[in-house]
Design a protein around this nucleic acid. Structure first.
Lengths: 237, 237
DNA sequence: TCCGGGCATATTGTACACAAAAACCGAAAA
DNA sequence: TTTTCGGTTTTTGTGTACAATATGCCCGGA
Protein backbone atom coordinates (compact mmCIF):
# COMPACT_ATOMS: atom_id res chain seq x y z
CA UNK A 1 0.00 0.00 0.00
CA UNK A 2 1.09 3.49 -0.76
CA UNK A 3 -0.05 5.08 2.45
CA UNK A 4 1.64 2.47 4.53
CA UNK A 5 4.89 2.94 2.72
CA UNK A 6 4.80 6.62 3.47
CA UNK A 7 4.30 5.90 7.13
CA UNK A 8 7.11 3.44 7.17
CA UNK A 9 9.38 5.98 5.55
CA UNK A 10 8.32 8.46 8.18
CA UNK A 11 9.02 6.01 10.95
CA UNK A 12 12.36 5.16 9.51
CA UNK A 13 13.36 8.79 9.51
CA UNK A 14 12.11 9.32 13.03
CA UNK A 15 13.74 6.16 14.26
CA UNK A 16 17.03 7.39 12.89
CA UNK A 17 16.45 10.76 14.49
CA UNK A 18 15.57 9.30 17.84
CA UNK A 19 18.52 6.99 17.72
CA UNK A 20 16.95 3.99 19.36
CA UNK A 21 19.27 2.31 21.77
CA UNK A 22 19.21 -1.40 22.11
CA UNK A 23 17.79 -1.51 25.61
CA UNK A 24 14.21 -0.72 26.58
CA UNK A 25 13.11 -0.76 22.99
CA UNK A 26 9.53 -1.47 23.95
CA UNK A 27 9.30 1.68 26.03
CA UNK A 28 10.98 3.75 23.37
CA UNK A 29 8.61 2.56 20.69
CA UNK A 30 5.65 3.25 22.97
CA UNK A 31 6.76 6.80 23.53
CA UNK A 32 7.56 7.35 19.88
CA UNK A 33 4.21 6.16 18.61
CA UNK A 34 2.33 8.01 21.33
CA UNK A 35 4.11 11.20 20.36
CA UNK A 36 3.27 10.64 16.73
CA UNK A 37 -0.40 10.17 17.52
CA UNK A 38 -0.70 13.09 19.90
CA UNK A 39 1.14 15.40 17.58
CA UNK A 40 -1.13 14.35 14.74
CA UNK A 41 1.58 12.94 12.51
CA UNK A 42 -0.27 9.65 12.57
CA UNK A 43 -3.77 10.48 11.43
CA UNK A 44 -7.05 9.08 12.64
CA UNK A 45 -7.78 5.68 11.19
CA UNK A 46 -4.21 5.09 10.19
CA UNK A 47 -3.62 1.39 10.26
CA UNK A 48 -0.70 0.01 12.22
CA UNK A 49 0.58 -3.52 11.78
CA UNK A 50 3.22 -5.07 13.98
CA UNK A 51 5.35 -6.42 11.20
CA UNK A 52 5.40 -3.25 9.13
CA UNK A 53 6.26 -1.04 12.05
CA UNK A 54 9.00 -3.42 13.06
CA UNK A 55 10.45 -3.30 9.57
CA UNK A 56 10.16 0.45 9.48
CA UNK A 57 12.04 0.77 12.72
CA UNK A 58 14.55 -1.90 11.89
CA UNK A 59 13.75 -3.99 14.93
CA UNK A 60 11.83 -7.19 15.61
CA UNK A 61 8.14 -7.59 16.28
CA UNK A 62 8.54 -8.25 19.98
CA UNK A 63 9.07 -4.70 21.28
CA UNK A 64 6.59 -3.33 18.73
CA UNK A 65 4.01 -5.76 19.95
CA UNK A 66 4.61 -4.63 23.50
CA UNK A 67 4.21 -1.00 22.53
CA UNK A 68 1.00 -1.48 20.58
CA UNK A 69 -0.51 -3.42 23.45
CA UNK A 70 0.28 -0.64 25.86
CA UNK A 71 -1.10 2.04 23.60
CA UNK A 72 -4.25 0.04 23.01
CA UNK A 73 -4.67 -0.16 26.77
CA UNK A 74 -4.35 3.61 26.92
CA UNK A 75 -7.11 3.67 24.30
CA UNK A 76 -4.97 5.62 21.92
CA UNK A 77 -5.18 2.75 19.49
CA UNK A 78 -7.81 0.10 19.06
CA UNK A 79 -7.61 -3.38 17.68
CA UNK A 80 -9.35 -4.00 14.42
CA UNK A 81 -11.25 -7.21 14.07
CA UNK A 82 -9.42 -8.17 10.95
CA UNK A 83 -5.95 -7.59 12.25
CA UNK A 84 -3.85 -4.56 12.86
CA UNK A 85 -4.50 -1.56 15.02
CA UNK A 86 -5.92 1.81 14.09
CA UNK A 87 -5.40 5.22 15.56
CA UNK A 88 -8.58 5.61 17.50
CA UNK A 89 -10.97 8.31 16.38
CA UNK A 90 -12.43 10.64 18.97
CA UNK A 91 -16.04 11.70 18.78
CA UNK A 92 -17.24 15.00 20.24
CA UNK A 93 -19.11 12.96 22.85
CA UNK A 94 -15.91 11.37 24.07
CA UNK A 95 -14.14 14.68 24.23
CA UNK A 96 -17.05 16.15 26.13
CA UNK A 97 -16.81 13.24 28.53
CA UNK A 98 -13.08 13.71 28.97
CA UNK A 99 -13.35 17.43 29.52
CA UNK A 100 -16.14 17.02 32.04
CA UNK A 101 -14.05 14.63 34.05
CA UNK A 102 -10.97 16.76 33.70
CA UNK A 103 -12.86 19.71 35.11
CA UNK A 104 -13.64 17.72 38.22
CA UNK A 105 -10.08 16.52 38.62
CA UNK A 106 -8.49 19.89 38.00
CA UNK A 107 -10.84 21.38 40.57
CA UNK A 108 -9.69 18.79 43.06
CA UNK A 109 -6.09 19.56 42.21
CA UNK A 110 -6.66 23.27 42.78
CA UNK A 111 -8.41 22.54 46.04
CA UNK A 112 -5.52 20.49 47.34
CA UNK A 113 -3.01 23.05 46.13
CA UNK A 114 -4.86 25.73 48.06
CA UNK A 115 -4.86 23.58 51.18
CA UNK A 116 -1.13 23.05 50.95
CA UNK A 117 -0.21 26.59 49.97
CA UNK A 118 3.39 25.65 49.27
CA UNK A 119 5.37 28.89 48.80
CA UNK A 120 7.81 27.23 46.42
CA UNK A 121 4.99 26.14 44.14
CA UNK A 122 3.35 29.53 44.31
CA UNK A 123 6.55 31.13 43.17
CA UNK A 124 6.83 28.77 40.21
CA UNK A 125 3.27 29.48 39.16
CA UNK A 126 3.92 33.20 39.39
CA UNK A 127 6.90 32.82 37.10
CA UNK A 128 4.75 30.88 34.70
CA UNK A 129 2.11 33.63 34.63
CA UNK A 130 4.66 36.34 34.08
CA UNK A 131 6.09 34.41 31.17
CA UNK A 132 2.56 33.98 29.89
CA UNK A 133 1.95 37.72 29.93
CA UNK A 134 5.12 38.31 28.02
CA UNK A 135 4.27 35.67 25.43
CA UNK A 136 0.90 37.34 25.10
CA UNK A 137 2.53 40.63 24.25
CA UNK A 138 4.81 38.93 21.79
CA UNK A 139 1.94 37.05 20.20
CA UNK A 140 4.06 33.89 20.48
CA UNK A 141 1.42 31.28 20.00
CA UNK A 142 3.65 28.26 20.38
CA UNK A 143 4.88 29.56 23.67
CA UNK A 144 1.36 30.27 24.87
CA UNK A 145 0.37 26.68 24.30
CA UNK A 146 3.43 25.49 26.10
CA UNK A 147 2.98 27.77 29.07
CA UNK A 148 -0.68 26.93 29.36
CA UNK A 149 0.25 23.29 29.53
CA UNK A 150 2.95 24.07 32.05
CA UNK A 151 0.51 25.93 34.27
CA UNK A 152 -1.70 22.90 34.55
CA UNK A 153 1.26 20.65 35.19
CA UNK A 154 2.36 22.88 38.02
CA UNK A 155 -1.12 22.70 39.44
CA UNK A 156 -1.07 18.91 39.26
CA UNK A 157 2.26 18.76 41.01
CA UNK A 158 1.11 21.18 43.63
CA UNK A 159 -1.71 18.85 44.57
CA UNK A 160 0.84 16.27 45.70
CA UNK A 161 -1.20 13.27 44.77
CA UNK A 162 0.43 10.65 42.64
CA UNK A 163 -2.83 9.07 41.61
CA UNK A 164 -4.40 12.37 40.70
CA UNK A 165 -1.41 13.28 38.55
CA UNK A 166 -1.65 9.94 36.88
CA UNK A 167 -5.31 10.19 36.02
CA UNK A 168 -4.97 13.74 34.82
CA UNK A 169 -2.05 12.60 32.72
CA UNK A 170 -4.22 9.94 31.12
CA UNK A 171 -6.85 12.51 30.22
CA UNK A 172 -4.22 14.87 28.96
CA UNK A 173 -3.21 12.77 25.98
CA UNK A 174 -6.81 12.78 24.85
CA UNK A 175 -7.24 16.46 25.38
CA UNK A 176 -3.95 17.32 23.81
CA UNK A 177 -4.73 15.43 20.65
CA UNK A 178 -7.77 17.58 20.25
CA UNK A 179 -6.47 20.91 21.26
CA UNK A 180 -3.42 20.69 19.05
CA UNK A 181 -5.72 20.58 16.09
CA UNK A 182 -8.10 23.28 17.17
CA UNK A 183 -6.07 25.66 19.18
CA UNK A 184 -4.28 27.11 16.23
CA UNK A 185 -7.65 28.31 14.99
CA UNK A 186 -7.89 30.36 18.08
CA UNK A 187 -7.06 33.99 17.58
CA UNK A 188 -4.32 35.10 19.90
CA UNK A 189 -6.69 37.64 21.38
CA UNK A 190 -8.79 34.91 22.90
CA UNK A 191 -5.96 33.84 25.15
CA UNK A 192 -5.94 35.12 28.62
CA UNK A 193 -4.44 34.25 31.90
CA UNK A 194 -6.94 36.10 34.02
CA UNK A 195 -8.46 32.88 35.17
CA UNK A 196 -5.07 31.40 35.88
CA UNK A 197 -4.31 34.43 38.01
CA UNK A 198 -7.59 34.05 39.83
CA UNK A 199 -6.77 30.43 40.63
CA UNK A 200 -3.35 31.40 41.90
CA UNK A 201 -4.87 34.11 44.06
CA UNK A 202 -7.27 31.64 45.64
CA UNK A 203 -4.38 29.28 46.32
CA UNK A 204 -2.40 32.07 47.94
CA UNK A 205 -5.40 32.90 50.09
CA UNK A 206 -5.73 29.26 51.01
CA UNK A 207 -9.33 29.46 49.89
CA UNK A 208 -9.66 25.92 48.60
CA UNK A 209 -13.33 26.15 47.69
CA UNK A 210 -12.77 29.24 45.64
CA UNK A 211 -9.77 27.70 43.93
CA UNK A 212 -11.75 24.59 43.06
CA UNK A 213 -14.69 26.57 41.73
CA UNK A 214 -12.60 28.77 39.49
CA UNK A 215 -10.52 25.89 38.20
CA UNK A 216 -13.60 23.89 37.39
CA UNK A 217 -15.19 26.80 35.63
CA UNK A 218 -12.00 27.48 33.72
CA UNK A 219 -11.63 23.94 32.43
CA UNK A 220 -15.33 23.61 31.70
CA UNK A 221 -15.27 26.75 29.62
CA UNK A 222 -12.33 25.50 27.61
CA UNK A 223 -13.97 22.13 27.18
CA UNK A 224 -17.20 23.63 25.93
CA UNK A 225 -15.29 25.76 23.46
CA UNK A 226 -13.44 22.78 22.06
CA UNK A 227 -16.49 20.56 21.85
CA UNK A 228 -18.59 23.18 20.13
CA UNK A 229 -15.79 23.79 17.67
CA UNK A 230 -15.59 20.09 16.94
CA UNK A 231 -19.32 19.94 16.38
CA UNK A 232 -19.32 23.03 14.21
CA UNK A 233 -16.65 21.67 11.97
CA UNK A 234 -18.10 18.18 12.13
CA UNK A 235 -14.66 17.06 13.05
CA UNK A 236 -13.35 13.76 14.16
CA UNK A 237 -9.83 14.16 15.24
CA UNK B 1 13.41 -21.59 47.15
CA UNK B 2 10.71 -23.00 49.36
CA UNK B 3 8.30 -20.10 49.18
CA UNK B 4 8.52 -19.92 45.42
CA UNK B 5 7.81 -23.58 45.06
CA UNK B 6 4.65 -23.17 47.08
CA UNK B 7 3.49 -20.39 44.83
CA UNK B 8 4.22 -22.42 41.76
CA UNK B 9 2.22 -25.28 43.17
CA UNK B 10 -0.61 -22.87 43.85
CA UNK B 11 -0.48 -21.51 40.34
CA UNK B 12 -0.42 -24.94 38.89
CA UNK B 13 -3.56 -25.85 40.75
CA UNK B 14 -5.29 -22.66 39.73
CA UNK B 15 -4.19 -23.00 36.17
CA UNK B 16 -5.69 -26.44 36.03
CA UNK B 17 -8.86 -25.11 37.65
CA UNK B 18 -9.15 -22.19 35.29
CA UNK B 19 -8.50 -24.40 32.33
CA UNK B 20 -6.51 -21.95 30.26
CA UNK B 21 -7.41 -22.08 26.63
CA UNK B 22 -4.73 -21.67 24.09
CA UNK B 23 -5.82 -18.29 22.78
CA UNK B 24 -5.53 -14.97 24.59
CA UNK B 25 -3.22 -16.47 27.14
CA UNK B 26 -1.76 -13.07 27.95
CA UNK B 27 -5.13 -11.69 28.95
CA UNK B 28 -6.00 -14.78 30.93
CA UNK B 29 -2.77 -14.66 32.87
CA UNK B 30 -3.28 -10.97 33.55
CA UNK B 31 -6.72 -11.60 34.98
CA UNK B 32 -5.55 -14.60 36.97
CA UNK B 33 -2.66 -12.82 38.62
CA UNK B 34 -4.73 -9.71 39.28
CA UNK B 35 -7.35 -11.83 40.97
CA UNK B 36 -4.71 -13.52 43.07
CA UNK B 37 -3.30 -10.20 44.20
CA UNK B 38 -6.62 -8.55 44.92
CA UNK B 39 -7.91 -11.56 46.78
CA UNK B 40 -4.75 -11.64 48.84
CA UNK B 41 -3.61 -15.10 47.77
CA UNK B 42 -0.41 -13.52 46.55
CA UNK B 43 0.94 -11.66 49.53
CA UNK B 44 2.69 -8.33 49.62
CA UNK B 45 6.30 -8.56 48.60
CA UNK B 46 5.83 -11.92 46.95
CA UNK B 47 8.36 -12.13 44.19
CA UNK B 48 7.23 -13.04 40.72
CA UNK B 49 9.63 -14.15 38.01
CA UNK B 50 8.62 -14.66 34.41
CA UNK B 51 10.23 -18.03 33.99
CA UNK B 52 8.85 -19.54 37.19
CA UNK B 53 5.32 -18.37 36.54
CA UNK B 54 5.51 -19.71 33.03
CA UNK B 55 6.65 -23.08 34.29
CA UNK B 56 3.99 -23.07 36.96
CA UNK B 57 1.30 -22.40 34.40
CA UNK B 58 2.76 -24.72 31.83
CA UNK B 59 3.09 -22.05 29.17
CA UNK B 60 5.90 -20.03 27.68
CA UNK B 61 7.36 -16.79 28.96
CA UNK B 62 5.83 -14.63 26.27
CA UNK B 63 2.25 -14.33 27.57
CA UNK B 64 3.49 -14.18 31.15
CA UNK B 65 5.75 -11.35 30.23
CA UNK B 66 2.84 -9.50 28.67
CA UNK B 67 0.74 -10.00 31.77
CA UNK B 68 3.39 -8.80 34.20
CA UNK B 69 4.00 -5.71 32.10
CA UNK B 70 0.33 -4.85 32.16
CA UNK B 71 0.02 -5.39 35.88
CA UNK B 72 3.09 -3.29 36.51
CA UNK B 73 1.49 -0.52 34.50
CA UNK B 74 -1.57 -0.82 36.70
CA UNK B 75 0.84 -0.45 39.61
CA UNK B 76 -0.30 -3.69 41.13
CA UNK B 77 3.21 -4.99 40.72
CA UNK B 78 6.49 -3.17 40.61
CA UNK B 79 9.77 -4.07 39.02
CA UNK B 80 12.58 -4.87 41.35
CA UNK B 81 15.97 -3.53 40.47
CA UNK B 82 17.57 -6.90 40.72
CA UNK B 83 15.13 -8.78 38.56
CA UNK B 84 11.63 -10.04 39.03
CA UNK B 85 8.50 -8.26 40.07
CA UNK B 86 7.00 -7.94 43.52
CA UNK B 87 3.43 -7.49 44.64
CA UNK B 88 3.44 -3.85 45.43
CA UNK B 89 2.94 -2.87 49.07
CA UNK B 90 0.43 -0.17 49.85
CA UNK B 91 1.18 2.41 52.48
CA UNK B 92 -1.58 4.15 54.43
CA UNK B 93 -0.59 7.34 52.60
CA UNK B 94 -1.31 5.79 49.25
CA UNK B 95 -4.62 4.43 50.41
CA UNK B 96 -5.53 7.81 51.79
CA UNK B 97 -4.65 9.30 48.44
CA UNK B 98 -6.74 6.76 46.58
CA UNK B 99 -9.74 7.19 48.83
CA UNK B 100 -9.60 10.96 48.59
CA UNK B 101 -9.64 10.78 44.85
CA UNK B 102 -12.33 8.15 44.85
CA UNK B 103 -14.53 10.39 46.97
CA UNK B 104 -14.30 13.07 44.32
CA UNK B 105 -15.03 10.70 41.48
CA UNK B 106 -17.92 8.97 43.22
CA UNK B 107 -19.40 12.35 43.97
CA UNK B 108 -19.19 13.22 40.30
CA UNK B 109 -20.79 9.91 39.42
CA UNK B 110 -23.66 10.57 41.82
CA UNK B 111 -24.07 14.07 40.42
CA UNK B 112 -24.37 12.79 36.89
CA UNK B 113 -26.68 10.00 37.93
CA UNK B 114 -28.97 12.58 39.55
CA UNK B 115 -28.92 14.69 36.43
CA UNK B 116 -29.92 11.76 34.29
CA UNK B 117 -32.47 10.28 36.69
CA UNK B 118 -32.85 7.13 34.60
CA UNK B 119 -35.89 5.20 35.95
CA UNK B 120 -34.37 1.87 34.93
CA UNK B 121 -31.26 2.55 36.94
CA UNK B 122 -33.25 3.78 39.90
CA UNK B 123 -35.16 0.54 39.93
CA UNK B 124 -31.98 -1.49 39.90
CA UNK B 125 -30.54 0.49 42.77
CA UNK B 126 -33.75 0.01 44.74
CA UNK B 127 -33.47 -3.73 44.23
CA UNK B 128 -29.91 -3.60 45.42
CA UNK B 129 -30.88 -1.75 48.58
CA UNK B 130 -33.72 -4.14 49.35
CA UNK B 131 -31.34 -7.05 48.99
CA UNK B 132 -28.92 -5.19 51.23
CA UNK B 133 -31.55 -4.85 53.95
CA UNK B 134 -32.27 -8.51 53.76
CA UNK B 135 -28.62 -9.48 53.94
CA UNK B 136 -28.36 -7.22 56.95
CA UNK B 137 -31.11 -9.14 58.72
CA UNK B 138 -29.47 -12.40 57.81
CA UNK B 139 -26.07 -11.21 58.95
CA UNK B 140 -24.66 -12.49 55.65
CA UNK B 141 -21.38 -10.72 55.60
CA UNK B 142 -20.18 -12.05 52.27
CA UNK B 143 -23.35 -10.86 50.63
CA UNK B 144 -23.08 -7.45 52.25
CA UNK B 145 -19.65 -6.96 50.75
CA UNK B 146 -20.90 -8.05 47.38
CA UNK B 147 -23.97 -5.83 47.44
CA UNK B 148 -22.00 -2.85 48.62
CA UNK B 149 -19.71 -3.32 45.67
CA UNK B 150 -22.68 -3.72 43.38
CA UNK B 151 -24.23 -0.50 44.61
CA UNK B 152 -21.18 1.45 43.62
CA UNK B 153 -20.99 -0.27 40.28
CA UNK B 154 -24.59 0.66 39.58
CA UNK B 155 -23.77 4.22 40.45
CA UNK B 156 -20.83 4.22 38.07
CA UNK B 157 -22.96 2.84 35.29
CA UNK B 158 -25.66 5.34 36.01
CA UNK B 159 -23.23 8.17 35.40
CA UNK B 160 -22.90 7.06 31.78
CA UNK B 161 -19.32 8.10 31.40
CA UNK B 162 -16.91 5.57 30.04
CA UNK B 163 -13.87 7.44 31.25
CA UNK B 164 -15.25 7.90 34.72
CA UNK B 165 -16.05 4.20 34.98
CA UNK B 166 -12.57 3.41 33.86
CA UNK B 167 -10.84 5.62 36.36
CA UNK B 168 -13.05 4.45 39.18
CA UNK B 169 -12.28 0.91 38.12
CA UNK B 170 -8.57 1.60 38.39
CA UNK B 171 -9.00 2.90 41.91
CA UNK B 172 -11.20 0.00 42.80
CA UNK B 173 -8.50 -2.64 42.57
CA UNK B 174 -6.46 -0.64 45.05
CA UNK B 175 -9.34 -0.09 47.37
CA UNK B 176 -10.52 -3.65 47.12
CA UNK B 177 -7.15 -5.06 48.06
CA UNK B 178 -7.35 -3.09 51.25
CA UNK B 179 -10.94 -3.54 52.16
CA UNK B 180 -10.88 -7.29 51.70
CA UNK B 181 -8.36 -7.50 54.43
CA UNK B 182 -9.99 -5.07 56.83
CA UNK B 183 -13.65 -5.39 56.22
CA UNK B 184 -13.94 -8.76 57.87
CA UNK B 185 -12.86 -7.06 61.07
CA UNK B 186 -15.91 -4.94 60.82
CA UNK B 187 -18.73 -6.05 63.03
CA UNK B 188 -21.87 -6.63 61.03
CA UNK B 189 -23.59 -3.99 63.10
CA UNK B 190 -21.45 -1.28 61.58
CA UNK B 191 -22.94 -1.88 58.16
CA UNK B 192 -25.71 0.34 57.07
CA UNK B 193 -27.33 1.35 53.89
CA UNK B 194 -28.81 4.59 55.21
CA UNK B 195 -26.32 6.61 53.23
CA UNK B 196 -26.94 4.57 50.14
CA UNK B 197 -30.63 5.27 50.53
CA UNK B 198 -29.96 8.96 50.95
CA UNK B 199 -27.94 8.99 47.74
CA UNK B 200 -30.71 7.21 45.91
CA UNK B 201 -33.25 9.67 47.24
CA UNK B 202 -31.23 12.60 45.98
CA UNK B 203 -30.95 10.94 42.58
CA UNK B 204 -34.68 10.39 42.47
CA UNK B 205 -35.21 14.03 43.36
CA UNK B 206 -32.80 15.03 40.64
CA UNK B 207 -30.91 17.00 43.25
CA UNK B 208 -27.43 16.55 41.83
CA UNK B 209 -25.65 18.72 44.37
CA UNK B 210 -27.17 16.84 47.25
CA UNK B 211 -26.34 13.51 45.65
CA UNK B 212 -22.74 14.56 45.14
CA UNK B 213 -22.37 15.84 48.69
CA UNK B 214 -23.74 12.72 50.29
CA UNK B 215 -21.73 10.41 48.07
CA UNK B 216 -18.55 12.28 48.80
CA UNK B 217 -19.22 12.23 52.50
CA UNK B 218 -20.04 8.54 52.36
CA UNK B 219 -16.85 7.55 50.58
CA UNK B 220 -14.72 9.86 52.68
CA UNK B 221 -16.07 8.35 55.86
CA UNK B 222 -15.27 4.86 54.62
CA UNK B 223 -11.84 5.95 53.52
CA UNK B 224 -11.03 7.51 56.85
CA UNK B 225 -12.16 4.36 58.62
CA UNK B 226 -9.93 2.18 56.51
CA UNK B 227 -6.90 4.41 56.76
CA UNK B 228 -7.17 4.79 60.52
CA UNK B 229 -7.50 1.04 60.84
CA UNK B 230 -4.41 0.56 58.74
CA UNK B 231 -2.49 2.99 60.89
CA UNK B 232 -3.74 1.45 64.12
CA UNK B 233 -2.64 -1.97 63.09
CA UNK B 234 0.52 -0.65 61.52
CA UNK B 235 -0.48 -2.59 58.47
CA UNK B 236 0.93 -2.73 55.04
CA UNK B 237 -1.33 -4.71 52.87
C1' DT C 1 -26.12 -13.13 -12.25
C1' DC C 2 -25.95 -14.36 -7.59
C1' DC C 3 -24.76 -17.33 -3.82
C1' DG C 4 -21.84 -20.57 -1.29
C1' DG C 5 -17.78 -23.08 -0.23
C1' DG C 6 -12.96 -23.70 -0.16
C1' DC C 7 -8.39 -21.94 -0.61
C1' DA C 8 -4.82 -18.40 -0.14
C1' DT C 9 -3.12 -14.83 2.52
C1' DA C 10 -2.45 -11.57 6.08
C1' DT C 11 -1.76 -11.09 10.90
C1' DT C 12 -1.61 -12.08 15.49
C1' DG C 13 -0.45 -15.60 19.29
C1' DT C 14 2.90 -18.59 21.26
C1' DA C 15 7.19 -20.91 21.92
C1' DC C 16 11.99 -21.03 22.14
C1' DA C 17 16.83 -19.64 21.81
C1' DC C 18 20.40 -16.48 22.41
C1' DA C 19 22.53 -12.32 24.29
C1' DA C 20 23.44 -8.90 27.61
C1' DA C 21 23.35 -6.89 32.10
C1' DA C 22 23.29 -6.98 36.87
C1' DA C 23 23.82 -9.14 41.26
C1' DC C 24 25.82 -12.63 44.18
C1' DC C 25 29.50 -15.42 45.90
C1' DG C 26 33.97 -16.74 46.80
C1' DA C 27 38.74 -16.23 46.89
C1' DA C 28 42.83 -13.77 47.28
C1' DA C 29 45.49 -9.94 48.74
C1' DA C 30 46.34 -5.99 51.68
C1' DT D 1 39.58 -9.03 58.98
C1' DT D 2 38.16 -6.38 55.23
C1' DT D 3 38.01 -5.13 50.59
C1' DT D 4 38.17 -5.80 45.86
C1' DC D 5 38.17 -8.40 41.69
C1' DG D 6 36.49 -11.84 38.76
C1' DG D 7 33.66 -15.61 37.56
C1' DT D 8 29.09 -17.58 37.88
C1' DT D 9 24.28 -17.38 38.00
C1' DT D 10 19.90 -15.36 37.47
C1' DT D 11 16.76 -12.84 34.85
C1' DT D 12 15.09 -9.92 31.55
C1' DG D 13 15.41 -8.07 26.51
C1' DT D 14 15.24 -9.22 21.80
C1' DG D 15 14.97 -11.90 17.64
C1' DT D 16 12.91 -15.51 15.01
C1' DA D 17 10.21 -19.43 13.63
C1' DC D 18 6.02 -21.82 13.69
C1' DA D 19 0.96 -22.40 14.59
C1' DA D 20 -3.64 -20.91 14.54
C1' DT D 21 -7.26 -17.96 13.02
C1' DA D 22 -9.95 -15.01 10.50
C1' DT D 23 -10.88 -12.65 6.28
C1' DG D 24 -11.38 -11.92 1.63
C1' DC D 25 -11.26 -13.62 -2.91
C1' DC D 26 -12.04 -16.67 -6.59
C1' DC D 27 -14.29 -20.22 -8.82
C1' DG D 28 -18.02 -23.25 -9.66
C1' DG D 29 -22.82 -24.26 -9.64
C1' DA D 30 -27.70 -23.01 -9.58
Amino acid sequence: MDKDSQIIEELNKLAAGEGLTRRNLGQQVTDLVRKLVVSGKLKIGQRLVEQRLAEGLGISRTPVREALHRLAQEELLSKRTRGGYVVRPLTPEEVEDAEGLRAVLEAYAAQRAAQRRDPEVIREIENNLDAFDQALVERDEQKLIELNSEFHHLLHQAAQSKLLSRQLGDLETTVERISRALISNMSAGEWSCDEHRAILQAIKDGDSEQAADIAKEHVSRGGLWIVSRMREENLEL
